[in-house]
Design a protein around this nucleic acid. Structure first.
Length: 853
RNA sequence: GCGGGUGUGGCGGAAUUGGUAGACGCGCUGGUUUUAGGUACCAGUUUCUUAUGAAGUGGGGGUUCGAUUCCCUCCACCCGCACCA
């Protein structure tokens, strides 16, 4: 029996499926739909093993659902805008578009080599005007609905690269690329009103019951709802009050100072005449935003000299400080400080000698506050009309009285802030807006869409090439026809990925989406991707879906009905004698079984198992893996090793094991071909014991694997298939029709069950060995016969005092008395009971007997 | 600091509502086939043990006839958020 040649066979069936357009689909309301989507890749140049794992999982779901009779949409595209293309332009002098499209071409070939059941006719790339032009249309619709606005806001500015940096790109207060100290700058930015949807986005999480709890929790924390109050404090000698936000109105009598942010209008105003405040504000702006910097930063402030009146405490006044720990972006940018019950306030009060009055007492005792604020439960003290109340009651009472006085109100606050989408970069979707000196900022006319990026740009100087372009930004105003300039900022690439799943429904439409297509396909039934997108991408997409609904483009609020986050692929790390990281390919075992560096023969230090990264070189190349073992073996291995949501460790031995299974299955079916009946032969009416045993195992396996695939427990599905292989190996061949029929049934079944995971091998076995002339990809999923799954005899465990002493085989649903009798007759059971009296016997039908002595 | 998760052999991991712990794979050990092999097949593989049993799912305690599963507590590791008032 010759070896299975994966390379040849895989190429053959990939071509075969393409030729038969096996995975091209159209919306068809008569058929049930299923939309499977994996997070689309950034075209960095080559696929990595993480992609292989991600897309294999999606492919299993897609192929399985197709076999179940669903009309399956399974598309692929490219998240093709972004900074790496511009970096390549600066470093290598290649145009971002050329670089990106070349990468796409290469990665497309790599994905095709995996044998994915993708509808390539629906491929999209976000950097194509045919995509981003429609994104501009959506932007204008959002603008008209008031979902986009322009606002001056603080940004991280890299003075060398002359661009805004996202918070994630600021490392220890420095630009991640330039290394320059990042400045805080105020710039006009386009913003999405995502914060208007805080409550809606939060509440709707409850309905996403096919999302991981972890992701829902992360979004919940990110949105960050808190319940509290706004309170207006009268500033002595001023007409306007100081408005603050607090979640602890119950501690109002413990207030000993007020603090406002350095960016608070009051601080800004006072700074004009007060050099100390001015200097302090400058100091605050220099403060690092890194976690470390914040942790180390001392609570500092400067007294403004102003005082406010306590709303309830007649005659009591509180000093107003500008403080470095108050954030302008949260609440009102101002707080009252209650040192006894807030650690930050306490630190601040100790530094400036402010009073500390406890107002919440645990167990009714007067607590002494030294260096630690008390934030636990208790009863209110030292607080006039609140004394004796529980915290929650006191909060309600304070709010009630403030509302009566017109000095406060209950207020729910959210951490979520509006989404700034402006980026000072070339390789992104142009924002279709025009600035006119006369008319202000106006929308580009729709007939002028798409606003295309100019091709003739240079990257020889820092900053945004669109700004430097000689002509591109100079346009006439759509309203008055006068001289005007185009917005040169482009959109955050997260905008591109916030609606691509909708575009896939009608990827060539001459408008953003076609309603009937979207109505049929959306929401995505199963979305699969990395946990790293748990917050931003998924939250932005949820917001965008709502925006598209409000602008009439869609009917769904929630774009992803089911979400699955897969784990990372890890690998051992290796270091040479000289301390350099080594690729797994540069390392091998010598005859003595020690790891050595191939080039030098010297010993290698094995480091920890870590996430694959270029810097530590613990990467394997999917192309080389597929070349060596075949796509099926690679797919089988990434599915079999670990539960799909956990990290898996890539080992060469594991991949080899998968490859061996491919060979074994191919060999087994080839060798047993002569023992089976012809294709399509009718089942005989009678089966002997041998054949029946095989049929039962077959149908049980179908039931189990089907359930495992429904639950996305791919590793368990594979374990069940291995078990079934064992049964096949032990099976007794007999020259009778029932056995021959049962054997064909079992072999066809195993081929069908592996098909979602190893589609090429399955198709090959189905056609070339099992002799079908139809395609396996068009064959319905096998059904388990319930009558064959039920065993008529079961094995029960017999325990004495909870310890296993024997197992007995009895009829299914045997009477308890009979079971007791059999159990007690067992010698090992009698020995364990000995002279003891039996106190009672517990019988759990079909499972266990426990004799209590 | 706040929130959440995980912990089972040498390794990855199985185990319906609490009901035979270690399925399946990898690795390892021994054997078979005159085996070019990263071959194939068979047997074994939690630990201890007087070979009869005993212990055992991070540690300790509890509920129960019975706990990997439920409760309390401690430990370790991982993830998310973080000067959010």
């Amino acid at each position: 029996m010759s070896r299975y040649n994966a390379k040849e066979v895989e190429a053959k069936w990939q071509a075969g499926w393409a030729e038969h357009k096996s995975f091209e689909v159209e919306a068809d309301p008569a058929k049930p739909k299923y939309y499977v989507l994996e997070m689309f890749p950034y075209p960095s140049g080559r696929i990595h093993i993480g992609h292989v794992r991600n897309y294999t999982m999606g492919d299993v779901v897609a192929r399985y659902k197709k076999a179940q009779g669903f009309n399956v949409l399974h598309p692929m595209g490219w998240d093709a805008f972004g900074l790496p293309a511009e970096n390549a332009a600066r470093d290598k002098g290649v145009h971002p578009a050329d670089w990106t499209y070349a990468n796409i071409a290469h990665m497309r070939d790599e994905l095709k080599g995996m044998g994915l059941s993708l509808d390539w006719s629906k491929e999209i790339a976000t950097c194509h005007p045919g995509y981003y032009g429609h994104q501009q249309k959506l932007f204008l619709d959002f603008f008209r609905k008031g979902l986009v606005y322009r606002k001056e806001s603080w940004v991280n500015w890299d003075p060398v690269d002359m661009t805004v940096l996202a918070n994630e790109q600021v490392i220890d207060g420095k630009g991640w690329r330039s290394g320059a100290v990042v400045e805080k700058r105020k710039l006009d930015q386009w913003m999405f009103r995502i914060s208007d949807y805080s409550e809606e986005l939060l509440n709707a999480l409850d309905k996403l019951d096919r999302w991981p709890d972890r992701v829902r929790l992360m979004q919940q924390n990110w949105i960050g709802r808190s319940q509290g109050a706004h309170i207006a404090f009268d500033i002595i000698g001023e007409s306007d009050p100081l408005n603050i936000y607090t979640t602890r109105p119950d501690t109002l009598f413990g207030a000993s100072f007020m603090a406002v942010s350095a960016d608070h209008p009051l601080a800004q105003r006072l700074a004009k005449d007060n050099p100390a405040i001015k200097a302090f504000i400058a100091e605050c702006h220099q403060m690092g935003t890194s976690e470390e910097a914040i942790e180390k930063a001392e609570k500092k402030g400067v007294d403004t000299g102003l005082e406010v009146a306590h709303p309830f405490f007649e005659g009591k006044t509180l000093p107003v400080y500008v403080a470095n720990f108050v954030l302008m972006e949260y609440g009102t940018g101002a707080i009252f400080g209650c040192p006894a019950h807030d650690q930050r306030d306490l630190d601040f009060a100790r530094k400036y000698g402010l009073e500390v009055t406890p107002v919440v007492a645990p167990d009714g005792t007067d607590p002494e506050i030294f260096e630690t604020a008390y934030t636990g439960p208790g009863k209110i003290i030292n607080s006039d009309f609140l004394n004796g109340m529980e915290i929650e009651a006191a909060k309600a009472e304070v709010i009630r009285r403030l509302e009566e006085m017109g000095k406060g109100t209950e207020k729910i606050n959210y951490r979520l802030r509006d989404w700034g989408l402006s980026r000072q970069r070339y390789w992104g979707c142009p924002i279709p807006m025009i600035h006119c000196a006369k008319c202000g900022t106006v929308a580009e006319r729709e007939e002028n869409l798409p606003v295309k990026l100019p091709d003739d740009v240079t990257f020889d100087k820092p900053g945004n090439p669109l700004d430097h372009h000689p002509t591109w930004k100079h346009v006439s105003c759509p309203d008055c026809g006068g001289e005007a300039t185009r917005e040169t900022d482009t959109m955050d690439t997260f905008v591109d990925s916030s609606w691509y799943f909708a575009r896939f429904c009608s990827p060539r439409a001459d408008q953003p989406v076609e309603r009937d297509k979207v109505d049929y396909w959306l929401p995505v039934d199963q979305y699969i991707g990395g946990i790293e997108h748990a917050i931003l991408h998924l939250l932005y997409s949820r917001f965008y879906s709502r925006g598209m609904k409000e602008t009439g483009w869609s009917h769904v609020d929630e774009p992803f009905a089911g979400l699955f986050t897969q784990g990372m692929v890890t690998h051992e790390t290796y270091k040479s004698v000289s301390g350099e990281w080594l690729l797994p390919d540069e390392v091998d075992h010598n005859d003595a079984g020690e790891l050595i560096e191939l080039a030098t023969g010297r010993a290698v230090t094995v480091g920890g198992v870590e996430k694959m990264s270029k810097s530590k070189k613990n990467v394997v190349d999917p192309g080389a893996i597929i070349e060596k073992f075949g796509a099926d073996a690679a797919r089988w291995y990434v599915l079999s090793d670990s539960p799909p949501d956990r990290d898996m460790e890539w080992t060469d031995a594991g991949a080899t094991g998968a490859w061996r299974f491919v060979q074994r299955l191919h060999r087994y079916i080839g060798e047993n071909m002569m023992g089976i009946c012809a294709v399509g032969e009718k089942a005989p009416s009678e089966f002997n014991e041998n054949a029946l045993k095989l049929r039962k195992a077959t149908h049980k396996t179908v039931a189990q694997v089907t359930q495992n695939l429904e639950d996305l427990h791919f590793n368990n599905a594979i374990a069940r298939i291995y078990e079934f292989m064992k049964v096949l190996n032990e099976f007794m061949w007999e020259d009778d029709r029932g056995t021959q029929w049962a054997l064909r049934e079992s072999m066809e079944t195993i081929v069908q069950l592996i098909a979602p995971m190893m589609p090429h091998l399955a198709e090959e076995l189905w056609r070339s060995l099992l002799g079908h002339d139809t395609m396996l990809v068009d064959t319905p999923w096998p059904k388990a016969d319930p009558a064959l799954i039920v065993e008529d005899r079961v094995t029960m465990a017999v325990q004495v005092k909870g310890k296993l002493r024997a197992t007995i085989e009895v009829a299914l649903d045997e009477q308890a008395e009979k079971i007791e009798e059999i159990a007690l007759a067992q010698k090992s059971v009698q020995n364990a009971i000995g002279e003891n009296a039996i106190r009672k016997i517990i019988v759990v039908p079909n499972r266990i007997v426990n004799v209590v002595i």
